Simulated scan of single mutants.
Amino acid sequence: MSGTTMVVVITCVVFGVLYEMYKKHLEFKTKTIQHNKTSDEYSIQLKQKVDQLTERVQVLEKIVTDEGYQVQKDINNL
């Protein structure tokens, strides 16, 4: 095998390996983007749930601090 042929073969092998590495990188990047999208959707759902629960707690706080509730509680204690 001549020197030129060896250089061509080695170059082809190196480019082949680099191409495969690049394909794997693109696959990983695609999976990462999909995972991030799923995580973002889940985060949005969690934020909505927290907002709903916060509203419910505020309503309950209004009910408990209402004077009418206290009077009813005092009547029930008698």
Rank of each mutant, 00 (worst) to 15 (best):
L18G: 15
Y19Q: 01
E20T: 02
E20N: 03
E20D: 05
E20C: 06
M21S: 08
Y22D: 04
Y22L: 04
Y22P: 00
K23D: 09
K24W: 08
H25Y: 14
L26W: 01
E27H: 02
F28H: 06
F28A: 08
F28K: 05
K29F: 04
T30E: 13
T30V: 04
K31R: 06
K31A: 11
T32H: 02
T32R: 03
I33V: 14
I33E: 13
Q34W: 01
Q34G: 08
H35G: 11
H35M: 09
H35K: 07
N36H: 08
N36L: 12
N36Q: 13
K37M: 13
K37C: 04
T38K: 05
D40H: 08
D40G: 10
D40N: 12
E41T: 13
E41H: 11
Y42S: 11
Y42E: 15
I44G: 01
I44L: 06
I44W: 02
Q45K: 07
Q45L: 09
L46E: 11
L46P: 00
L46M: 07
K47T: 10
Q48A: 10
Q48W: 01
K49N: 08
K49S: 13
K49P: 00
V50E: 15
V50T: 11
D51K: 04
D51E: 14
Q52W: 10
Q52S: 14
L53G: 01
L53R: 04
L53E: 12
L53F: 05
L53M: 08
T54C: 02
T54F: 02
E55D: 12
E55Q: 07
R56H: 10
R56Q: 15
R56A: 10
R56G: 08
V57R: 02
V57L: 07
V59S: 03
V59M: 03
V59D: 07
L60E: 12
L60H: 06
L60A: 11
E61C: 01
E61W: 00
E61H: 02
K62F: 08
I63H: 06
I63Y: 10
V64I: 15
V64R: 06
V64E: 13
T65K: 05
D66G: 01
D66A: 15
E67M: 05
E67R: 05
G68E: 10
G68D: 09
G68T: 03
Y69P: 00
Y69E: 06
Q70T: 04
Q70Y: 09
V71E: 14
V71D: 12
V71A: 07
V71Y: 14
V71I: 15
Q72W: 06
Q72V: 08
Q72A: 15
K73Q: 14
K73A: 11
K73W: 14
